[in-house]
């Protein structure tokens, strides 16, 4: 008896595998809730509750925005074989760039576009550095981008505790509030800053076209699937990687600008700016299977998990770690289901 790859799994098998694993995850979660003294049904209801009202939908939307931008960029980067773990840091760089424009350049109608430009640019520089280190010195980008996250964390702390500290913040670690010209419009009285949302959707569509409808995209896909073949074909691997890295860093930078210009309206302590979007987006990108377009679906899905977990911890006064448990179990069930559905059991050796 052994496992074998199933090249063309039937639809009902895929369905069965996913149902099985999701049921398993829900069962485990339910057990955990029971142990904690909470009715599992009530907990599941809460988990999905953000879908049921406008407040909840706004929360899902707010979290979807950065996940969309970063996720689309990472889907591209991963596909090309650039394992960018540093979106968190690139997002912070974007926030720094945006804050610089907002605080130190004369405000006007050009402020917001300039913020996105500089923020995205700094994000791109930050990821481009890792790509350059890899192409030039062979430094592993998983490691360099991870370390860069820490560097920019301290850069932001330095800025808000030192030179950029606001005059009106009573000594706390904030810059002053951005002028109105540097604040993004929001949808009604929610925190959904819609221009960034549009940018995210455009990014997903644009990268999908770039990847599947242009010669550049063709080269990218070859490089990602078979670096050796790419070399035989005479493709310039270094440049292709650098370009993909720059693009994903740029989009993460845009997400950073969106967070500071749409929600915080100032630069502040780094752990408060990013909330781990850079890491969650890795999962968004992975679930999208290297297709930037699919991020339009996977980013809201992760957004729902985050918002649902929040509803859970708020309604039941549960520890915040419940979000991690829910996310971890659901993810494991998804990848388990995927793996299972692509295999079949053979009853002979």
């Amino acid at each position: 008896m052994r496992w074998e790859l199933d090249p063309s799994p039937s639809l009902w098998k895929v369905f069965l595998a996913y149902s099985l694993f999701v049921a398993l995850a829900l069962l485990l979660l339910g057990l955990l809730f029971l142990l904690y003294g909470v009715s599992p049904l009530k907990a599941y209801g809460l988990l999905l509750s953000p879908l049921g009202d406008s407040l909840g939908l706004a929360e899902v939307g707010r979290r979807t925005i950065p996940l969309l931008l970063i996720g689309a960029g990472l889907a591209l980067a991963f596909r090309v074989g650039f394992f960018n773990i540093g979106a968190e840091g690139q997002l912070l760089m974007g926030a720094v760039g945006g804050a610089y424009v907002a605080l130190f350049l004369p405000p006007g109608p050009w402020t917001l576009p300039l913020m996105f430009l500089l923020g995205g640019g700094l994000g791109a520089v930050w990821s481009g550095l890792a790509a350059w280190l890899r192409v030039r010195f062979g430094a592993n980008e998983i490691l360099t981008t991870l370390m860069q996250n820490y560097l920019v964390y301290y850069l932001v702390v330095y800025l808000v505790a030192g030179p950029w500290k606001g005059q009106m913040v009573f000594g706390f670690l904030y810059t002053d509030r951005f002028p109105p010209e540097a604040q993004l419009p929001r949808l009604g009285d929610t925190l959904v800053h819609w221009p960034t949302l549009l940018l995210g959707i455009a990014a997903a569509l644009g990268l999908q076209l770039l990847l599947f409808r242009t010669p550049l995209g063709f080269e990218w896909r070859i490089l990602g699937e078979n670096p050796q073949a790419a070399r035989y074909l005479g493709l310039k691997g270094g440049r292709l990687i650098l370009l993909a890295a720059l693009l994903s860093g740029f989009l993460a930078g845009l997400a950073g600008v969106g967070e500071v210009a749409g929600i915080h309206l100032r630069l502040l302590e780094p752990a408060q700016i990013s909330l781990g979007y850079g890491f969650t987006a890795i999962l968004v990108a992975w679930l999208a299977r290297g297709r930037p377009l699919w991020v339009l679906f996977t980013a809201p899905l992760l957004g729902l998990i985050l918002a649902g977990g929040d509803a859970l911890k708020l309604a039941l006064s549960m520890p915040f770690r419940v979000v991690d448990v829910v996310a971890g179990l659901l993810l494991l069930s998804l990848i388990g289901a995927e793996a299972l559905s692509q295999r079949r059991l053979i009853w002979r050796r």
């Binding site: 967070e259 929600i263 915080h264 502040l268 408060q272 909330l275 911890k313 006064s317 915040f320």
Partner: peptide, 9 residues
């Protein structure tokens, strides 16, 4: 009632 670990945003 309470809720813990609420980021500023």
């Amino acid at each position: 009632r309470y809720v813990e670990s609420v980021p500023e945003a």
